[in-house]
């Protein structure tokens, strides 16, 4: 895969699955992290794109979402940037709290944080960076096979 993959998407929810598949295909060489790549990263990238389109860009079809995927020797990073004014991710309630459990929304950021090694927002709150570390996966695989 290229060291860096950069592209923009229209603000169209129908583009998400194709974009996620495109990124995963370009990461096929990462076979040693296949499950975490195909599940953890896939879910998190799709959630980040949906949040960017629905909430960040407010569903505005004139806006776009920028995707930057970087592969390093120790990690895979994806930065998703929308054209909205941003938000404070620390104010999003825990969806697993008893009073939140019956709500139909609010699980996307939680899932990203659970499934990725790191999740960072920029100060404005309109860009999220997802980090999947390779070395931890290899350690987990060694533990699993021990």
């Amino acid at each position: 895969m290229d060291r860096q993959l950069v592209f923009e998407l229209p603000n169209d929810l129908g583009c998400i699955e194709g974009a996620v598949e495109f990124v995963l295909l370009r990461c096929e060489f990462c076979e040693e992290v296949s499950r975490r790549l195909r599940f953890n990263f896939r879910v998190s990238l799709a959630e980040a794109l949906a949040n960017a389109m629905l909430y960040g860009n407010g569903g505005d079809p004139a806006k776009r979402v920028r995707v930057e995927v970087t592969v390093e020797s120790s990690a895979l990073q994806a930065r998703i940037t929308d054209q909205g004014s941003g938000f404070d991710p620390d104010r999003v309630p825990d969806p697993t709290a008893p009073e939140q459990l019956h709500r139909p929304c609010g699980r996307g950021i939680f899932l990203m944080r659970q499934l990725m090694d790191e999740v960072h927002y920029n100060d404005q709150g309109n860009a999220v960076t997802l980090v999947l570390r390779f070395q931890d996966t290899e350690a987990l695989l060694r533990e699993a096979s021990a």
Binding site: V43, E47, A50, H102, R107, G108
Partner: peptide, 16 residues
Amino acid sequence: GYIDSSGLGVLVSLSK
């Protein structure tokens, strides 16, 4: 193959 958080949400909503 896959359910996202919106899919989970719709199941919660329908169940209710």
